[in-house]
Write a protein that binds this DNA or RNA. Sequence first.
RNA 1: GCUCCGGUAGUAUAGUCCGGUCAAGUAUAACGGCCUCUCGAGCCGUGGACCCGGGUCCGAAUCCCGGCCGGAGCACCA
Length: 584
Amino acid sequence: MTLKDDKELRELIRKTALLNATQHNGKAQAGALIGKIIGERQELKTKAKELSALVGEIVSEVNSISAEEQKRIVENEWPQALKKEKAEEEKHLPPLPNADKYPQVVTRFSPNPDCVLHLGSARAIILSHEYARMYRGKFLLRFEDTDPKVKRPVLEFYDSIRRDLSWIGCKPDEEYIQSDRIPLYYEYAERLLKDSNAYVCTCIPDEFRKKALSQKPCNCRNLPPTEQLERWNRMLNGGYKEGEAVVRVKTDLKHPNPAVRDWPALRIINPKKYPHPRLGSKYRVWPLYNFSTGLDDHLMGITHIIRGKEHLTNQVRQEYMYRHLCWKYPEAIHYGRLQITGAFLSKSKIVQGVREGTYRGWDDPRLATFVALRRRGITPEAIRKMIIDVGSKPQDVTLSWENLYAYNRKNLDPTSDRYFFVSEPAELKVQQVSKAFHAKLPLHPEKPARGYREYTITPKSSDNTATFWISKKDIDAAETGATVRLMELFNVKIESIKADSAEASFASESYEDARKTKARLIHWIPKGEAFPCQVVMPDATVTEGFAESACKKLKPDSVIQFERFGFVRVDENDAKLTAYYAHK
RNA sequence: GCUCCGGUAGUAUAGUCCGGUCAAGUAUAACGGCCUCUCGAGCCGUGGACCCGGGUCCGAAUCCCGGCCGGAGCACCA
């Protein structure tokens, strides 16, 4: 039977075409239809050409019908089909490669303790931790502190990293410090030397580089193991000085990437001149990154390495060593660089800025360090969610703060109490207040159970006036003669405006009046109920003003919303309230 | 220069491996409206993208080739 005679198929095409046409201004498109039809009836794949002709025929029939008529037919014959369905799904991480080949997934985060943690490290941390959790595996912390000279570790950062990790919700299951494992690295160095898989190179670096570039071995490479071990001992006992000898792991000298050829594994650092912050002058031979990391990843049973793509060639280098030792290289995921608009995410810039005093400290609001984000009231959940959404792709990403704020707002909005903060206070004097008013302001607009702040406004008996603090911004926006509502209190009519103050008269009490006239709603603080407050903004400038007196009882670290101003985190609260601005 | 990697709306992401129900989904931002005693939240709606050029194919975001753009590595750093 040819397709042309297949009644059922013709009907399917007609239905699909009509549906398609009603969705696209009365004109169905043959290409899209063929896709849909084949999607539903895979067996037609081989007859695509024939099908294409048939679809073309039916489509021109359908397209010649008017749009109204098409719609009528569809509504009559397939009323169900017009309904749109929306599938909602929670985003999770894609599966890890070959996770089922290992008895347990083990991931690691391995920082050099030479700086505090920042958003740039968040990807390695959160993805490694999240994957470990997803597969009920283990997440290890490993301090890579084997360079006492160029990237010297600093004692305070071991602890700050532990704290930051636990704040972000990624507590490690185990912790290792590489500087405690030096004898282990020595053992493997000897083994590689003994097996002629490594050699002690005493060439001056430039000379070696020339040889390597021309794919030739240097004179040290082929010396016998006994000689290598003798040289090794000389490295250890001081027979060579810093820079005079280095252990190299043998690779392929013909490897297309010169950077891979016979890479250095251990070198000498003058222990007197460059003592290690933890161990002092105990060692003079220190492993280099590829050696210690490569060994540890295997020895600690790491199954999945998640790190930046700058490490791609390091994997190639390390794989040579793995072959020498007959080990299998773990799965490795290399993600792209992460930036956030306007912030420096490089350790060197952060360290330099703090040291030079450009920033006030590691938690300066201009920085994207964890401590700075924490101080501003950015929640760990928001950061985690954002990083998980970004995932582990090899593309570079530039995040915008707005994005982070949106995640954070979702966390903060339901839990933050509301208060009034008057920035750059200006005086508002209201006349003709004939009686005392009682204002009851909810702490949260959607959750009355959270309670209220209450203020009684009693006019001065001599002239029936009441005086408030309001923001200069609201004074600037006010117009003489206009009505303004003091939120949850009463409406006033603006009589006169000066630079730093305004006068008004009582207009009415009901909220309905304000709605009818579309009066602006502004926040206020009764004179006498003002509590000095400063808000440190994200650019480190300070906005001075008054918080309402109910804020006196706020505890440091709580995050609140100053209405019509933004979310802030209470930083200090004694004679004066100091808050850090998070975002609108 | 050499060696690698990557390019989907302003931003981020889904889809790419294995071509078809993708005239491209989602979030956020923008815009408009509704709701709300906050400029917050919520709800509804609108606009917005497959880097470019060829090729294969009935059919390409997806496969192939070329180009362009971006990034990383090329340390006795991690």
